[in-house]
Design a protein around this nucleic acid. Structure first.
Lengths: 242, 242
DNA sequence: TTGACTTATATGTCTAGACATATAATCGTA
DNA sequence: TACGATTATATGTCTAGACATATAAGTCAA
């Protein structure tokens, strides 16, 4: 999206209009509630057609910077820092991006009929089979995160025979399931014995927890819980400019 | 964005085109890498002008569902669940939305010359004054979160005289600073004595930490740390369809 | 003052063209 | 075969219009 232009290239007109307005909003020249010039006024100012300013304003509206009201005009919105774009990177990508070596280790893997707890966790009602996987990701041979995953075999049958001893299940799924939606829940716990050992931290140390529930057009695919040492890992969410 | 339409209203054509394509992607009919029909083919299929299908495809590209390549065509992208929209609600809104009563309490407030630690935290270099605020938010009279905030008076001079004994500083800032950008960092810690007392939890209990750094066009506004009891609070981030 | 009706207007969507531009594919040459 | 030049083409942007529609504002009657 809106990159930092170095000024050498000539941006297109609608992008210039969008950037102009965005800057006035960000510097406070046009405060929240301020009415932006009407489309026909911008048409006159920039000497272009209405479709061009409309495209600029539509994108600003999509980014929640302005609100458009029929007959009334377009208005600067109040900043809503409750909505931020959170980057939850693929763990391997995250580690290699830091210039560290990625390591993966399968701890356990079971194929079983779904227990009541499994069905609860996957949000499915019918009986069926699941694959349960426990594994560990490490950076420079230091434990980075432990993963505890359930895959619904009704949705992903060939996960039954996949080899997860070398390829992480997340990566495998990414390449074998067409398109998914997901919901992430973030919380904090303290490490119990098992977790402390797996992450090589002290019992009682804080851990960041990411629970991800993934589905595809109303069918559950997988549920995964990732545990990170809480003092060394951080999630960064940047507002706007995604 | 894409709401569940009840079918009674007739969506506009470009929205229908966008929804049609989105559904084929989400159901897996068009898997990642699949080439979407060319614009001129969609023009023929829907019997509309090119600008209309272009608008639909442009929005799908903005949502990262497809990738557009000149001369080559438009292609379904691989799902990138590393990017999710995190809703960090205004605390009062979050609590009242749950049907619970919101409570606010100012714990401490100091106006001082910025210490080295203050300048570090706010990312400023010059000497100057800051306001340091500690306060607590509660739901149904149970501690919900404690807040530890620093405001840069060079950027927000009238914060020096604002009354934070009734209005939370976050809410005050929202109404007195035109527009801001922010970066959030999420981590986990265990409660120390002071935190445990403020949140009415046990020492050593897990806490979710949100550090928010807010600025406006390269000027620091405020830095805030929010501590939530880690076992009772959860952050939810939904991928796509925000 | 209040409520119902009318009107003006800014935005929402759409068209049938146009030229620009990046680049995949082809062709020609060393 | 390898590489450089050419060409074809899908997307990117833009225009000068058009009609639809929601709604703020004005009008008028109870």
């Amino acid at each position: 999206m809106s990159l930092a232009t170095d000024g050498t290239d000539k941006p297109t007109l609608y992008k210039r209009i969008r950037a102009d307005i965005e800057q006035r909003i960000l510097t406070g020249e046009w405060p929240p509630g301020h009415r932006i010039p009407f489309e026909h006024e911008l048409v006159a100012r920039y000497g272009c057609s209405r479709m061009t300013v409309n495209k600029a304003l539509s994108e600003l509206a999509q980014a929640d910077l302005i609100e458009r009201r029929r007959r009334a005009g377009s208005f600067v919105r109040r900043p809503q820092h409750q909505s931020a774009v959170l980057k939850i990177a693929d763990i391997r990508a995250e580690i290699t991006a830091l210039g560290r070596s990625y390591g993966y280790e399968l701890i356990g893997r079971k194929l079983r009929a779904a227990t009541a707890a499994d069905r609860e966790r996957l949000g499915i009602k019918k009986a069926g089979k699941v694959v349960a996987i426990a594994c560990r990701h490490s950076a420079d041979n230091v434990p980075f995160a432990v993963e505890d995953r359930l895959i619904d075999l009704a949705s992903v049958p060939n996960a039954a025979t996949a080899d997860f001893s070398r390829e992480p299940p997340g990566s495998w799924l990414l390449h074998h399931v067409p398109w998914t939606e997901a919901e992430h829940t973030i919380s904090a716990i303290v490490a119990d014995d098992r977790t402390a050992e797996a992450l090589d931290i002290a019992v009682g140390a804080p851990c960041l927890v990411i629970d991800r529930y993934t589905w595809r057009s109303a069918r559950t695919i997988t549920a995964v819980r990732l545990l990170y040492p809480g003092d060394s890992h951080r999630l960064v969410a940047r507002f706007k400019g995604g």
